[in-house]
């Protein structure tokens, strides 16, 4: 991959932002996405599985698997992506297999967050850290 001037600048600015302590802004966009999904309901850990590789060499296509028995909807968030909301999947039958396997873009090394709305109205959360060697851009 060739770094364009724009990308190089963006990387530099991103680094500067982190250095200046602006990192919470990234978390806030992701958090806002999650809050919209949960309507502010507190999340519990566990109850769904988020399968990812520990190291992804190509951020343009990172395999991700969500397994959420008992869930009616799952939101997948990549907090460090320009658009943190990756996808929302709905399973009308909570007793179904409720599995989705796909490939996503990841701009950088980050911790993915999956939030599931369960049939009983609870919200559960799973996180998974993925080290990205070469970031997938424009996500």
């Amino acid at each position: 991959m060739q770094l364009s001037r724009r990308k190089t600048l963006a990387l530099g600015l991103g680094g500067a932002a982190v250095a200046l302590g602006a990192a919470p802004a990234v978390a806030t966009a992701a958090e806002a996405t999650i809050e919209r999904f949960t309507n502010g309901t507190p999340r519990e850990p566990g109850g769904l599985a988020l399968g990812v590789p520990e190291i992804a060499e190509n951020g343009n296509a990172v395999p991700v698997e969500i397994v959420a028995p008992g869930a009616v909807a799952v939101l997948l968030v990549a907090p460090a992506n320009p658009v943190p909301e990756v996808l929302t999947v709905r399973f009308p039958d909570p007793d179904g297999p409720n599995r989705l396997s796909t490939r996503i873009r990841m701009a950088d090394t980050q911790t993915l967050v999956a939030v599931a709305e369960m049939a009983d109205g609870r919200f559960v959360e799973a996180t998974a850290r993925v080290h990205v060697t070469v970031g997938g851009c424009g996500a």
Binding site: A78, N81, P82, L87, P92, T102, I104, G138
Partner: peptide, 18 residues
């Protein structure tokens, strides 16, 4: 069976397995 809203974070040539 399944309904998915995809954002720009889904890779080129979206692959969906369920």
């Amino acid at each position: 069976l399944i309904e998915i809203d995809l954002g720009p974070g889904v890779s080129v040539d979206p692959y969906l397995e369920f």
